[in-house]
Design a protein around this nucleic acid. Sequence first.
DNA 1: AATTTATTGTTAATTTTTTCACATTAGTGA
DNA 2: TCACTAATGTGAAAAAATTAACAATAAATT
Lengths: 206, 206
Amino acid sequence: MNTKLPPRTVERLSKYRRLLDKYKDLEEAHIYSHKLAALLNLTPEQVRRDLMLIGLTGNHRKGYNIKALIGQIGTTIDRQEGHRVALVGIGNLGKAVLGFIRKANTKMDIVAAFDIDRNKVNTQVAGVACYDIGAAAQIISREQIRIAILTVPPEAAVNTATLLLESGIRGILNFTSVHLDVPPGIYLKDYDIITSLEEIGFFIMD
Amino acid sequence: MNTKLPPRTVERLSKYRRLLDKYKDLEEAHIYSHKLAALLNLTPEQVRRDLMLIGLTGNHRKGYNIKALIGQIGTTIDRQEGHRVALVGIGNLGKAVLGFIRKANTKMDIVAAFDIDRNKVNTQVAGVACYDIGAAAQIISREQIRIAILTVPPEAAVNTATLLLESGIRGILNFTSVHLDVPPGIYLKDYDIITSLEEIGFFIMD
DNA sequence: AATTTATTGTTAATTTTTTCACATTAGTGA
DNA sequence: TCACTAATGTGAAAAAATTAACAATAAATT
Ligand SMILES: NC(=O)c1ccc[n+]([C@@H]2O[C@H](COP(=O)([O-])OP(=O)(O)OC[C@H]3O[C@@H](n4cnc5c(N)ncnc54)[C@H](O)[C@@H]3O)[C@@H](O)[C@H]2O)c1
Ligand SMILES: NC(=O)c1ccc[n+]([C@@H]2O[C@H](COP(=O)([O-])OP(=O)(O)OC[C@H]3O[C@@H](n4cnc5c(N)ncnc54)[C@H](O)[C@@H]3O)[C@@H](O)[C@H]2O)c1
């Protein structure tokens, strides 16, 4: 079900599902486009169009069936078999991420974590097995891991990313704020809290 | 210098500066739009347009003077006096954020952190004073804090956000993945790693 | 000094995204 | 049963963002 979808739509679909996840077991719960829009600061038209794009159809009187909505978002943006993810760098941020994803209901499975610190290697954090970074190539290949979350210290970022790409990683979520040069075909997403803060700062000025 | 700027431009300006920050002391360093674009997966035209929008002018032969570029981004998106920020919830994520921002060169100053845990209250983390959440209203008002980073457990999110808004906070960076209902005029930005991962997952499928 | 070159600055064109507008429709209740 | 209501679904319009195109130009070279 991988038709070409606008990137923004993909992002919003993920958010709809995150928001409505807690109602997923209610068989007959519905939500109106204007309600969903209000919850996420969007317009009702935008919500309807997004849902239209994934072929979801609502009820003219009750709105969208939440269970169906979650299901359809799943068939659209998830891989059936899920995604196998590695976390690299089990520091404060890495631990927070592990704990967070463990609790979340998602097809993103963190199947391995890597660190260089001997005290962390061969332990479990939030139910995830931690390995030495030296074993990364082997484990990523064996476990068919395709996505990596990079939370190593900045000075280790470039080398670690190179290693990950050589090991078969196809997408990186990079928290290090270090610029990574990736070849075409690799999906790199950077997140930097400072950019978020500066954006907030700019828009609250008056 | 607060002309109306497209939100995307603001975000990219922040990224240009983050990326070039390390060259800020080189008096005569220049960069071409195409070089900057390549570093951030943008087009040269987009870079030139962004810089045009903030009234920055490059040299036809050498490109943009990095120091001038950083300066002009500053006058455009920063407040001269900086922004006073509070971090609320000093757990794994909160500590990572404190350490990160302390090291970064930015006008965002974290001037207080809050927690409910008695072991954390009245300590310092990454040079930031930690207070009891009960003192938040008083300290936020006294310190004129306008922006809060919310890293409390999900179940505390709504109440804590209410308290922050009552205390004068105008912008919230919300990591809790809990939906917050904020009145108009308050700038809320949510970040959820799962949405980032799902986006990566979707776009590496083929 | 003239020529060449590579880049900027910017208008115009294009593409993408959002919003409008309204016909259609499922349920409600008189 | 039949109008009425408050939604959806979607083509069309508008707005926003990006990309193309190219004249202007500053430095390097001859
Ligand atoms: N983008 C953001 O918003 C943001 C926020 C906070 C932190 N950060 C960044 O995230 C990263 C981690 O932050 P943190 O606070 O968790 O740091 P941390 O020092 O607590 O953790 C880093 C971990 O990486 C491990 N490590 C070091 N070298 C390694 C290597 N070569 N291979 C594997 N593991 C290695 C360390 O042993 C440690 O466990 C840093 O780069 C930091 O700057 C980014
Ligand atoms: N959005 C994301 O990408 C992302 C990633 C990781 C974690 N998270 C979320 O961030 C939050 C923090 O995660 P963490 O791993 O640091 O959790 P944590 O449990 O380590 O830290 C939470 C901290 O908040 C404090 N706290 C509890 N109640 C409080 C209150 N009422 N007022 C002030 N402080 C209070 C606790 O004492 C603790 O120090 C959680 O909501 C988690 O789900 C989000």
